[in-house]
Write a protein that binds this DNA or RNA. Structure first.
Length: 215
DNA sequence: CACCAGGCAAGTA
DNA sequence: TACTTGCATGGT
């Protein structure tokens, strides 16, 4: 039993199945991945509702809509001009390389696709991996601020560990399993939101027994 | 009022 | 490689 499986079991017992990522379509998950960059999910939900209501939540309409018009509809998500630019760049990438077909894109080799996504301005490692895992059902582990915070807090990694360091740690200790990676990331985010926001002590956090075992 | 939220790119040293 | 700054709205 590895420490990462131990943590998973504790969190999974506490929270149960979380059925992530919220989103009815692959595109909605992808748009959500851009919109949630350094932004509360509540604000992303409001923005996704607007995009749906305005009929803007398709590859084709996003490709055609003017960037400044799109931006005005992204206001609740914050960074609205930057995010409009990023969505346009990503959708242009879908059109150019895959004829606008996400199914075609996700048929590509995982490592090749990841590297290509990372060339799109506005798509960094976490966003690329969220797209691959949640929208594409690919076996890749998503590392985010909560993951780093929780692992560093329990001395499993040091504060300055790189994204790649953390991702490799998870993927070397866990089986390559899409539902497991999905649920694990969801559990870490839920734990962070509920326990590590304003209570550094985390006395009633389901992982608190692990803290007492530290040297 | 201050601070934070499921990042990223561009600039600097 | 590592550090800094701008981006912006809404909740606590």
């Amino acid at each position: 039993m590895t420490v990462l499986m131990d943590i998973y079991d504790r969190l999974n017992t506490f929270f149960g199945d979380l059925h992530w990522w919220p989103g009815e379509s692959a595109l909605e998950m992808i748009v959500g991945a851009i919109l949630t960059q350094n932004t509360a999910w509540r604000n992303v939900e409001r923005t996704l509702s607007i995009l749906k209501y305005k009929g803007l939540l398709s590859v084709d309409t996003l490709y055609r809509v003017q960037e400044n018009i799109l931006a005005e509809n992204l206001r609740p998500a914050g960074y609205f001009r930057i995010k409009a630019q990023r969505l346009k760049a990503l959708v242009a990438f879908f059109q150019e390389f895959y004829g606008g077909s996400l199914e075609c894109m996700f048929a590509e080799d995982l490592s090749t696709l990841r590297n290509k996504l990372l060339t799109v301005k506005g798509v960094g490692e976490e966003t690329a991996d969220s797209i691959l895992l949640y929208a594409g059902k690919k076996p890749i582990f998503v590392v985010d601020a909560y993951t780093r915070r929780i692992l560093a807090g329990h001395k499993i990694i040091h504060d300055r560990a790189s994204y790649s360091d953390i991702q490799t740690l998870f993927m070397s200790q866990l089986p390559e399993d899409v539902p497991l990676f999905n649920q694990y990331h969801a559990l870490l985010v839920n734990t962070g939101k509920q326990f590590c926001r304003r209570a550094p002590n985390c006395t009633d956090c389901p992982l608190s027994p692990l803290l007492e075992q530290l040297p």
